[in-house]
Structures are given as C-alpha cells and as structure tokens.
Design a protein around this nucleic acid. Structure first.
Lengths: 191, 191
DNA sequence: CGCGCGATTGAGTAATTTCAAATCTAGTGG
DNA sequence: CCACTAGATTTGAAATTACTCAATCGCGCG
C-alpha cells in the first residue's frame, strides 16, 4: 500500500513498530484528487494538513487584481496546508489546487494534537519537521531579499531540478514573484 | 530577576512549577551585549539560540557587494539565531549584531534537545513556537510576493508600530528588501 | 481540425536602483 | 555650551529592471 510512504517519512526521524504505525495511520484519511480540482478555497474552514503520496499540488493567494502568488508546491513526501488557518482555526486565506492527479493522506488538527500528546516521539517528529520548514522559509526569504530574478531562478532550478517537468512555467514565475514574461525572457537565448 | 520574562514566555503555552522552571533555567546562560557588538559572524560555529530579555538585535546576510539584508530583528521575548546552522551544526551563514544594549539568555542545541527529551511539555512548547515562526515567515513571503513596496512598509508598521523608534530606517529598508533611498521617498510628503 | 492553454516576443511604461551630493542629528570632547 | 564628526536621512537625476499590454506562436487533446 501507499502508506509505506508515510511510514518511511516518519522513520526518517523516529522509529515506529507495526502497531504504532497502524495506530498512527488510523488517524489519517486517504483521498484522491483530480488535476485542476480545488482542495481548499479562501474562506473555507481548514480541517486538514495534507501529506502527499503522489501527484502535485500548490498553495497560493489571489490578490485584488486576480493575480496568483504561489506560496508553495507539494510533491511526494511533502506536507501542504494553510497552516495559519489550520493552527488557529480561522477561515482559509489560501487556495490549494491540484496541479497533477494526486493521492494524499489528510490529518485533522485534532488528530495531530492527539498523536503528539500520546506519543512523545511524534511530538518530536513534528517539532523537527517544523524546524526544517522554518529553515526552508528563511532561505526563501533570503533568496527574495539577496538575489535578482535570474539568480533566484537559477537557485530554484538547482534546488528542484525537475520542477519544470512537473509545473508549468507560469506557475514557477508566480512562485518566484515575477511575471511569466520575465521568466520567459530569462530562459530565452542570450540575445 | 529578569528570568521572570523567560518563565512567563514559557507559561504562555505550558505550565511549570518552581522546580521545573529552575531546572529549565539552569540550562540557559545569561549574557549582556553592548550596542554594535557582533554576537555571531559568518563562519562561526553556531552554539546558541538567544532569548532576548531586553534590547534589540538583528540577523542578516552580507552579499558579494557588501550589502546587508536583514532576515529578522529580535526584541524582548523573541528568539534569534542562525537556525539552519544551529540545527545542522554547520558554520554560520548569518551575522547577528546588537542594535541596542541587550540582555539575552542563550541555549545550546544540546541543552535544547536534552530539555525536549526530558519534558514532553517542553517539546510541545518548542513545537508550537516553531509552528508560529513558520506561519510568520509564510506571511512575510506572501507580503514580499503580493505587495508593492508601499504596502509592505505599511503592513510592517502596522504589525510593529514602534519599530521605527527602535531601529534606524535604513535597517527597516534592508528588512523590506529595498534601498534606504526608496524608503525615504515612501515616507516623504506626497509631492 | 480547431480550441484552449501555455509560452514567447516586442514596444512602451512604471517602479526601483544607483550614484552623487546636500542636509540633518545625536553624541563627544574641548 | 559650542564645535565637530560619524552616522543617518533626504533629494535629484540618470540608468536599469521588471511590468503591462498586445500580438503571435506552438502544441496536445477532444
């Protein structure tokens, strides 16, 4: 079953015996999502954090002018949600769409907290995951502050070499905070 | 003593009796830092996470052209470090300077992990802190992606109304990812 | 075949940076 | 108390970068 992906994911940081993993898994629910389906819309209650088994998703905002800005992508082994609203119980600020047919395991905030209470090592796991996430976001901020558009693009491709195969260029542009035209000119042959 | 600040900080999320708090506190060391002193330089080993009791610090990078980009400020009740290097044990990428005479409590990574191992509720505390930090960084990224310079500035002042009293404007500009000249023109009387 | 989406290209425009110089301010020493 | 200085801020003008708008191209899917 696909749940082996979740188990391996947890076992990168902690060890679980079969009974523990089964118990853990029982707190998730499995879901298939089709390409272009919307998983979450602004204003919705944010009931779940999604662990991606396969496929590809994006979380983004839409501004007054209707422009999308992508906060994160999520592929196999990644988590995605509107965390602000998930943790605080407020309505979603973000949208989450399926870019490519996906399978996810969703975890409610209540179940997450329950697991953390019941198992010290799961609390440890999520602390570490959050630490790594924090570091990744700091690096993204530094990249936005320090680097020009070309450098940001090159760093991104270095970090995720197969991103362009998974995601349309205009969405990469949106993630970088530039227009699709500017990205297109970046990758165009040096005039 | 100043340590009451630390206790209240922890007690926002968990409860500690006197013995527990004393034990916790014994894992920190107190330090005074003078204005303009450098607490951490690129290449240093990152031994500590700093909890600020008073004063003001900044964490920043310096690029090839010698330009500073401020990743975070830290005032009373905040934590500051080069987390990537702190958690991974690699040499510092960031600088940390004292903007205003400060008192801090420092916590080594070994002591942090020890406390988390020994007290489930401290693990809980740091998980929650990391979650909140993650959310704050996501919001900063969204602000960088979604908003123009004026909007970013206005949001920042809304979020930290007394920032300008604590920090020179050029450092606010550096935090926003713009030049001091641009910030100056923002705040200039509408021509 | 044709539609729709994504990507590219060109031209003009807007925002921000760069560089240079002038001004202001707080703290220091005489 | 005043003059001096270093740091911080402001202002101006030119250069650069990215954006907007518009048109075109390409391609896969139904």
């Amino acid at each position: 079953m696909m749940s082996i992906i979740l188990r391996q994911h947890f076992e990168q940081l902690i060890t679980l015996n079969d009974a523990e993993f089964d118990y853990l898994l029982s707190h998730f629910s499995f879901k298939k999502v089709k390409r272009r389906r919307i998983l979450l819309e602004r204003g919705d209650p944010v009931n779940n954090d999604y662990f991606v088994l396969s496929g590809c998703l994006k979380a983004y905002t839409v501004n007054d002018l209707g422009k999308e800005h992508i906060l994160q992508f999520a592929f196999k082994d990644w988590w995605i949600s509107d965390y602000q609203s998930y943790y605080k119980g407020t309505p979603a600020q973000l949208y989450i769409d399926c870019i490519d047919d996906a399978e996810v395991l969703s975890l409610t905030i209540a179940n997450r907290e329950k697991l953390c209470r019941e198992f010290h090592k799961i609390e440890y796991f999520f602390r570490k995951k959050s630490n790594f996430g924090y570091i990744a976001l700091q690096n993204r901020i530094l990249s936005l502050l320090n680097n020009n558009v070309r450098e940001r693009y090159e760093q991104l491709i270095l970090l995720y070499p197969d991103l362009l195969e998974k995601v349309p260029k205009q969405q990469v542009a949106s993630y970088l905070g530039i227009t699709r035209e500017t990205l297109s000119r970046l990758t165009a042959p040096a005039k």
